[in-house]
Design a protein around this nucleic acid. Structure first.
Length: 429
RNA sequence: GGAGACGUAGCGAAGUGGUCAUAACGCGGCGCACUCGAAAUGCGUUUAUCGGCUUAACACCGGUACAAGGGUUCGAAUCCCUUCGUCUCCGCCA
């Protein structure tokens, strides 16, 4: 969401940005907003001056009533009644016009960072850098559920009967590995100066509509029946929700937080739940990081954030690469975005394990997250978020990369303290 | 879940139909004075948002906001309705 004042003064910049994102059908919205905005301000001028008159008259009535001059008071009442109809009329139009403006502003994309590569869709995303050697072993790597199964580590059949497709039971060593990764990731971020937070796992509808569009909400969010509550799709929802309508003192910035939560997603969108296994599921757990900072610092934090994820994966000896989202694949609220992908020796390609985004002031504008500086001036914060790690999916990369020819799985040194010192998992079958 | 009380500035709190809502009073913050300095004291200052005007402004003019939404009224913090939240007691419960 961009600033309407910016659009008013720089319509060509906004249009140019829309073209860069290959969303030409939205070009017309810019001119529509300009026109609606003009009308909206005309209405405001008229309504406000009328209200000023009515307020004046009301004060007079009070004085006249006190003075016992009833006739004059009645005359003033008529005066007000004449204005009232017109005010109601104008206010109705004002409300409509503002809704129309809002509707358009919500879909006009954020001005993207100049460094974002131009491209139509995800096929034009750009690999930035590889970290670690993508190894393909000379023995066959089975599908991840098969690897888990050898350890008696997964029961999808029962999960299907109990909760349906898209759920899982993780069992024994695999379940322990899952928890170990989360705990290790938590401490990893704490050691890098982030503050650990456990947020609410359900949020109210007003927070939901604040943090996402209706379409996203419909495709992702589970609603609690009979309550005004939704299960979060990521802890970003409740973490950012914490700052809605808040004015943060500048000296508290940057807020660097790492949160844990289970995540619930309908996955109703284009992909759906097709693959068997734990790649795309209705419920998973995730360690997240979010940053609220001063505008000039957000590019610096963006680079620090994705680097954290890369470092975490490298510390567990998993090869990764970074893939930058091109303009056409970038969500409308984002200024810049980069995926961290882990190497899959089975598929012989990289797959997404995390996503790092700089939202600029777009999220802050929508949610009214402001900062007050020492002089008392207020401005919108910049917000960023990134996945630290989402274990069920990352376990795929973990198991595939650490599987030995004899069927055992080695545990990287950093994870051993969280696994009771275990150095290697021995299959049961 | 039941009963009661409550929701007003950073905090506490007055205002219960009009002419003090930026809002009494107190605390805190900021500035100034006194002091070698500090404390104490004294004086002053301290909401957000939108529109207009202006080259521009945290200057000026005006609109809106007393948990949120709606209603009654010429006029609502105050009266009525709905929702949300907080506290106390009871019930239930990891």
């Amino acid at each position: 969401m961009i600033d309407i004042k910016f659009l008013r003064e720089n319509p060509e910049v906004v249009k140019e940005n829309i073209k860069k994102k290959f969303e030409d059908h939205k070009l017309v919205l810019v001119d529509e907003v300009l026109e609606l905005d003009k009308r909206n301000r005309e209405i405001k001028v008229e309504v406000q001056s009328m209200k000023a008159e009515v307020n004046q008259a009301s004060k007079q009535i009070g004085a006249l009533m006190k003075a016992g001059k009833k006739d004059e008071a009645m005359a003033a009442k008529d005066e007000i009644a004449r204005h009232k109809g017109r005010i109601t009329e104008l206010e109705t139009e004002e409300k409509q016009v503002e809704e129309e403006i809002q509707k358009r502003m919500m879909v006009i994309p954020q001005i993207i960072d100049p460094s974002v590569p131009i491209g139509k869709d995800d096929s034009e995303n750009v690999e930035v850098e590889r970290f670690g050697e993508p190894v393909v072993p000379d023995f066959e790597i089975p599908y991840h559920t098969q690897i888990m199964d050898r350890f008696g580590g997964i029961d999808l059949d029962a999960a299907g009967r109990v909760a349906g497709n898209g759920f899982y039971y993780l069992i024994g060593d695999i379940a322990r590995l899952h928890s170990a990764v989360i705990s290790y990731a938590r401490d990893f971020m704490i050691n890098r100066g982030f503050t650990y937070v456990v947020p609410p796992f359900m949020i109210r509808s007003n927070v939901v509509t604040g943090v996402m569009s209706f379409d996203e909400m419909d495709a992702m969010m589970y609603k609690i029946e009979g309550e005004d509550l939704y299960l979060i799709g990521t802890s970003e929802h409740s973490m950012i929700g914490r700052f809605i309508d808040q004015i943060i003192p500048e000296e508290q910035l940057p807020l660097t937080l790492t949160s844990y939560s289970p995540c619930f997603r309908k996955e109703k969108g284009s992909h759906g739940i097709e693959e068997r296994g734990v790649y795309r599921i209705h419920q998973f757990e995730k360690q997240e990081m979010i940053v609220v900072c001063r505008p000039e610092e957000s590019p610096m934090w963006f680079n620090k954030l994705w680097q954290n994820t890369v470092d975490l994966f490298r510390s567990m000896e998993i090869p990764v690469r970074t893939l930058e989202c091109c303009s056409g694949d970038l969500a409308d609220l984002k200024v810049k975005s980069l995926d961290v992908e882990a190497w899959s020796p089975r598929q012989k390609k990289y797959f997404e394990v995390g996503s790092c985004s700089n939202l600029g002031d777009a999220q802050a504008r929508r949610l009214k997250i402001r900062v007050r500086d020492e002089e008392g001036r207020k401005y919108l914060a910049h917000t960023l978020n990134n996945t630290v790690v989402a274990p069920p999916r990352m376990l795929i990369a973990f198991l595939e990369n650490h599987l030995q020819e004899d069927g055992s799985v080695t545990i990287p040194e950093v994870l051993r303290p969280y696994m009771g010192g275990t150095e290697v998992l021995i299959p049961k079958k």
